[in-house]
Design a protein around this nucleic acid. Structure first.
Length: 566
RNA sequence: CGGGGCGUAGCGCAGCUUGGUAGCGCGUCUGGUUUGGGACCAGAAAGUCGCAGGUUCGAAUCCUGUCGCCCCGACCA
């Protein structure tokens, strides 16, 4: 492909609308253009990358025994009513009507369609196991689409669904997908981590997320370097700390702390670490006041708290409610003498001589000790994990990184098959509900995640397996016949080897070509310059390294093949 | 949905307070000189100032409404 004929409108300046790196670079490098909030066009370079990701995914799905299908995007309302999700899905579902005023949804996901499809034509256990997948657009009317391709309203997703006779079968399918996903992310050459996903809300079912590591990913992950444990901070299992039995319990005292509202203020004022203070947070669970207590330097994890309570709605109470329930404003609350259900984080259990609000404005207690001064209704795990927490499996200190949720595998069980009545006959002629799993990879999001992970201040650095072109050949001056001739010859030779090459034949100055090559992130650049050409040499540069290398013209094809292999 | 910000040429922005025939940089086009990290000179094209209504002799500018975009939050997985 000649650069002069390629549609890749690069921008010198960062469009004002883009905040995150992947969004900025994909716009600047001429990969994507916005059609509407969260809806993008993929230009040729982007689509080349997308197709490569799709092909890797496709090959691994096929290898795992999957069969590719293409399901409708437009889905009738009745299907969604059957599963009960027409109402539940809410505003996040794009809806439309046909000319007869019949309701449809633009598929946000395909459990309904596929379960109905399989139920219609598989009636015997002999038809199982079955693994179907597709790669196509999904539609979710996100409350707030953001960060370019990272959270779009229309996005490309691979979704796979497994159907088995029983849980043992599901286990086999799930494991196959687990290994397939590992292969996929390894082949994409992205650094990633598998973490446990929330299973509380849906109840006991297993789910794992494949996170592509990136400095400004949406998720925070803690992981263990010693064993294989990893989890989102919101889901990480937190434990009680060790108790220091040598610390003597002091006598509880009330101290005046005028104007001291935050944990920081109080700790500073009393000259103690924040970890000696406890935070008392008042929430309304389905309208009823409940209290959460966590160490002063920790964050309450609202999801964990809600799962603990098992309530439907959990909102933070306002100042007024605090005054009514506890007799003091925020900043002066404490569990001592509170006549409310108190849930305290496990970590608080082993703290000694804590500091907390006295439920009286501008007063705090010091030397508060659990058991003697207050007793919570329950000791529970309700805080966010942090780096340094002990690993729940092996007790080594956990590390923290950020990541982008790129794939997820999930044991659905009979959730949809039951609702939609998808049953089959087993060996004994008895009717059984099929057991399902579902497995997603955000293809367009993965492209964005790759950019987030692989870039520098000059632009994108595509991993070789998904680069839009593997090599760019740059004659320093396209008007010099000898340079163009050499460039064209190298282009032909590489192309003949099946290598994807971009020939920058544009009548631009060298600087412009180099900048563009760096920006669009082609892994290998071959530069044909006048001086080297005199000695019958050309220059090769790896996008991910600073230095370049002069090699004899005759060996360049060999050289490229060698790098591509390694 | 709440809070904040923004809509002026393809991109980035100024002009708006104090109303008077729309500007800058980059990009684009033409000609020339240049040619190893976003060249230079000369010339040119390109904008219903998001949209609608109002005030006014006159609105990019003031008022009202509306649409869209971005960020934070709530929400969701």
């Amino acid at each position: 492909m000649k650069a002069s004929e390629l549609f890749f409108p690069t921008l010198r300046e960062v469009p004002a609308e883009a905040e995150v790196v992947s969004h900025q670079l994909l716009l600047r490098a001429g990969f994507i253009r916005k059609a509407s909030g969260g809806v993008y066009s993929y230009l040729p370079l982007a689509y080349r990358v997308i197709k490569k990701i799709m092909n890797i995914v496709r090959e691994e799905m096929d290898r795992a025994g999957g069969q590719e299908v293409m399901l409708p995007i437009i889905q009738p309302r009745e299907l969604w009513e059957k599963s009960g999700r027409w109402d539940v899905y809410g505003d996040e579902m794009f809806r439309l009507q046909d000319r007869h005023k019949r309701d449809f949804a633009l598929g946000p996901t395909h459990e309904e369609i596929i379960t109905t499809l399989v139920d219609g034509d598989i009636h015997s256990y002999r038809g199982l196991p079955l693994l179907l997948y597709q790669i196509q657009n999904k539609y979710r009317d996100e409350i707030r689409p953001r960060f370019g391709l990272m959270r779009g309203r229309e996005f490309i997703m691979k979704d796979a669904y497994s159907f088995d006779l029983d849980d043992e079968g599901l286990e086999v399918s799930y494991r196959k997908m687990y290994h397939a996903y590992h292969r996929i992310f390894q082949r994409l050459r992205l650094e990633y981590r598998v973490v446990e996903a929330d299973s509380g809300a849906i109840g006991g079912n297993e789910s794992l997320e494949f996170m592509v590591l990136a400095d400004n990913g949406e998720s925070e992950i803690v992981y263990c370097q010693n064993c294989d444990y990893a989890a989102d901070v919101e889901k990480a299992v937190c434990q009680a700390g060790p108790e220091d039995l040598m610390v003597e319990l002091g006598e509880r005292q009330k101290k005046e702390t005028i104007g001291m509202k935050t944990v920081q203020d109080v700790a500073k004022y009393l000259n103690i670490p924040e970890s000696q203070v406890i935070k008392t947070l008042l929430y309304l669970a389905d309208g009823k006041p409940v209290v959460a207590v966590v160490r002063g330097d920790r964050e309450l994890n609202v999801i964990k708290f809600q799962n603990t309570l098992g309530c439907f709605e959990l909102v933070m109470a306002d100042e007024k409610a605090a005054k009514e329930c506890c007799g003091a404003s925020f900043g002066s609350l404490g569990p001592v003498g509170l006549d409310l259900p108190v849930y305290a984080d496990l970590e608080v259990q082993t703290m000694r001589n804590m500091v907390c609000g006295a439920n009286e404005n501008d007063f705090h207690y010091v030397n508060v000790n659990q058991g003697r001064d207050f007793a919570p209704l329950a000791w529970v795990d309700i805080r966010n994990g942090v780096a340094g927490d002990p690993c729940p499996q092996c007790q080594s200190p956990l590390q923290m990184v950020r990541g982008i949720e790129s794939g997820q595998i999930f044991k659905l069980g009979d959730k949809y098959s039951k609702a939609l009545g998808a049953a089959i006959l087993d060996q004994n002629g008895e009717s059984r509900t099929m057991i399902m799993g579902c497995y997603g990879i955000g293809v367009s999001r993965t492209m964005a995640a790759a950019v987030e992970q692989k870039h520098d201040d000059q632009g994108i650095i595509w991993p070789l397996p998904i680069a839009p072109f593997q090599v760019i050949v740059v004659p320093v001056n396209s008007n010099k016949e000898d340079q163009m001739k050499a460039a064209q010859a190298i282009y032909d030779e590489l192309s003949a080897k099946g290598i994807e090459v971009l020939l920058d034949d544009r009548d631009e100055r060298a600087g412009v070509k180099f900048k563009d090559a760096d920006l669009i992130g082609i892994p290998l650049r071959i530069t044909i310059g006048p001086r080297a050409l005199q000695e019958n040499k050309v220059e090769i540069k790896k996008r991910w390294e600073d230095s370049n290398e002069l090699v004899p013209r005759d060996t360049i094809v060999e050289k490229v093949e060698e790098i591509l292999k390694g």
